[in-house]
Design a protein around this nucleic acid. Structure first.
Length: 298
DNA sequence: CAGGCGTGGGC
DNA sequence: TGCCCAAGCCT
C-alpha cells in the first residue's frame, strides 16, 4: 500500500503544469522571491499582472530598495496584506547591501530576512536554486493529509512535523525533489482542492488513502473563522485605499469619510502609522510613507 | 500560539 | 459584506 508516489505527481506535473510567469526559464532568485511573497494568501490570478509590472520596473533587489516605501505600497496595489510590501522592500535593502544584490540560497540566511518564513525560505531554496528541501504550504499539507494519511483535510499546522512528513516523500536527487515540491503544490492548487476536489483528474487517485477510506469528512478541530466585515482589517484597507489613490497627502477630513465609527477609524489610522504604512506630514495630513518630507509619527 | 493582518472570487 | 477560501508571517 504505497502512501504517496510523488513520481506519479511529477509526471502529471510535467504534462499539466500551468504556464505561470515566474516559472519561465531565466527567472532569477529575486523573481522567485517576489512571486512567493506576493502569493502568500493571495490567488495566482491576482498576482501575475503585478509581478510582471514589478519585474519590469525593479529587476534587481537594489532597484526596489532605491525607491520609497510609499512607492512600493502604491505599486502593491490591492494584493492585500500590504505589510508584505514593506517587508519585501526591507528585505531587498538587506539583499542589496549585504548579499551583493543576489537573493541568498541558504535557508537560514533567507529566514533571517523580514517577511520570509518557513515556507518562503524553502520555496526560494528549491524553486530558485534547485535544492532538496521540503516545501510545505497549505496545498501540500492537504495533499499529504488526503493521499498519504486518508484524512479529509490537514489538521493544525506544525512546522517541524510537517517538514519531516514531506521530507520523507522527496526523491533523492535535488533537482527532482524541487520539481516534486512544485508538483505537489500544483496538484493541491488545481485538483486536490479544499472545496470540491477533482479526483477524476488526479494522477494518484488509485493509490489515494482518502479514496480508499471512502473520502471521510475532515474530523479534526474546527478551523478558526476569519471575519472581515466590520473588522479593523477592513477599515485599514479603506484608509490605505484613499492614500494609494492620491499622490498628494490627504487631510484627515477626507479619511473620516471612509468609516462612520470615529473610534475605530482613529485606532486603525494610528495602527497604520505604527506599522509604517502611513505617515503624517508636518501640516497634519496623511500620506504613504517616504513620499513627502519629514513625516511626523505621533 | 492564537489571533491579527487585505482583498476579491466562488457559491 | 452570508460563508469559505487563497503558494503565510509575525508577535
Amino acid at each position: 500500500m504505497p502512501s504517496l508516489d510523488v513520481i506519479e505527481v511529477l509526471d502529471w506535473f510535467d504534462a499539466n503544469a500551468r504556464d505561470l510567469a515566474w516559472r519561465k526559464p531565466g527567472t532569477t532568485g529575486w523573481g522567485v522571491l517576489v512571486s512567493e511573497i506576493m502569493l502568500q494568501q493571495t490567488p495566482v490570478a491576482r498576482v501575475e499582472p503585478i509581478w510582471l509590472a514589478w519585474m519590469a520596473r525593479w529587476p534587481l533587489p537594489s532597484s526596489l530598495a532605491a525607491v520609497s516605501q510609499g512607492e512600493v505600497v502604491r505599486a502593491w496595489g490591492k494584493l492585500g496584506y500590504p505589510r508584505r510590501a514593506l517587508r519585501l522592500h526591507a528585505a531587498a535593502g538587506v539583499i542589496a547591501a549585504e548579499h551583493n544584490d543576489v537573493v541568498p540560497a541558504d535557508i537560514d540566511t533567507l529566514l533571517a530576512l523580514p517577511g520570509i518564513g518557513a515556507y518562503t525560505a524553502r520555496a526560494v531554496a528549491a524553486f530558485a536554486y534547485g535544492q532538496r528541501c521540503p516545501v510545505v504550504d497549505t496545498n501540500v499539507r492537504r495533499v499529504v493529509a488526503r493521499a498519504a494519511h486518508g484524512a479529509g483535510d490537514a489538521g493544525p499546522p506544525s512546522t517541524t512535523r510537517d517538514l519531516a512528513d514531506v521530507e520523507a516523500l522527496l526523491p533523492a536527487d535535488p533537482a527532482t525533489a524541487a520539481r516534486a515540491s512544485a508538483a505537489l503544490m500544483e496538484l493541491g492548487a488545481v485538483v486536490c482542492t479544499a472545496r470540491a476536489p477533482r479526483c477524476g483528474d488526479c494522477p494518484v487517485v488509485s493509490s489515494c488513502a482518502w479514496q480508499r477510506a471512502g473520502r471521510p469528512a475532515y474530523d479534526g478541530p474546527a478551523k478558526a473563522v476569519q471575519r472581515f466585515a466590520g473588522t479593523d482589517r477592513q477599515v485599514r484597507g479603506l484608509l490605505l485605499d484613499v492614500l494609494r489613490g492620491s499622490t498628494d497627502p490627504a487631510p484627515k477630513t477626507r479619511l473620516d469619510l471612509v468609516w462612520s465609527d470615529a473610534c475605530q477609524r482613529d485606532r486603525c489610522l494610528h495602527s497604520l502609522v505604527v506599522d509604517g504604512l502611513v505617515e503624517q506630514t508636518e501640516d497634519g495630513r496623511f500620506a504613504l510613507p517616504g513620499e513627502h518630507r519629514q513625516g511626523v509619527t505621533k
